[in-house]
Design a binder for these strands. Sequence first.
DNA 1: GGATAAAACTACGAATTCCTCAGAAAACCC
DNA 2: GGGTTTTCTGAGGAATTCGTAGTTTTATCC
Lengths: 155, 155
Amino acid sequence: MNSKTRAAQLDDVSKAIIEQLQEDGRRSYAEIGKAVGLSEAAVRQRVQKLTEAGVMQVVAVTDPMQLGFYRQAMIGLRCSGDTRAIADKLAALEAVDYVVLTAGSFDIMAEVVCESDEDLINLLNEQIRKLEGVVSTETFVYLKLHKQLYNWGTR
Amino acid sequence: MNSKTRAAQLDDVSKAIIEQLQEDGRRSYAEIGKAVGLSEAAVRQRVQKLTEAGVMQVVAVTDPMQLGFYRQAMIGLRCSGDTRAIADKLAALEAVDYVVLTAGSFDIMAEVVCESDEDLINLLNEQIRKLEGVVSTETFVYLKLHKQLYNWGTR
DNA sequence: GGATAAAACTACGAATTCCTCAGAAAACCC
DNA sequence: GGGTTTTCTGAGGAATTCGTAGTTTTATCC
């Protein structure tokens, strides 16, 4: 039973808790409790359950630009053979932070984070395009990140 | 002076703090202090500064699948005119959680989160493809999310 | 429908953490 | 060197979290 693929229907209270933590991941259980109408302990239990179930996790997210990674790109890959195996190898690369199997003119899309154009070129030629089964790639260099949200699931 | 675009070089201690919070965004300041060799108050001050500077934020991230959004896709857009204006309009759509201006055969790439195929079709036809300046779109439906990381910036 | 089991919630004391502030140390700038 | 700013530490009190026990609610089974 893979609980990661099926939706456990969340009630409004759990959604409200998630919303609170999407605004501020360090907000206190007590404060969240006040906002959603639950005791502190109940909020704590729910957060623990939601986290264990993989529905939600509280983490720090950073801005690549501010950390010296000046070049980001989305790479579309056309492949032969088993795309899952290729996706595994892509996922193992340090510079790759996002990999998804897709339907369409690309079989896989991967987002990469690099320190410079040179790193990106190296990554592409030395690592990605040498993978067996990768037929061709198309690179979309990021000019400007315009929107990035983490708060779906509560609308 | 837009501090959001230039990297303020982080020292190793701040990077270590970020790593701690990437593992668990609710870890206590005292515990982080022990791990990085700083007092609890100093950790708190640094976290506050990092957050205010936009280098990092601690938030809850959720799994769309577990929340009933069964259809995700990346949409590549070819546009005429000012792509920034179009990106703004895309960003304003609820179902759109990620918008980036790119160089390459697409001018904009947008990730969307929908509850069903029908929602996706509606979104595409009623909202996105009706936007002025959108010449053509290509949709890459997600088959399987393979990797999703939030811990660049510390490698 | 009633008994039983499981799950979710509340309450509360103890332990821990957070917040504020004052002062020390370090870094920086003429 | 003197002055200024920034960063850090330590300490006390306030607030939060944790663990646990007991209660209520919900679900299950016959």
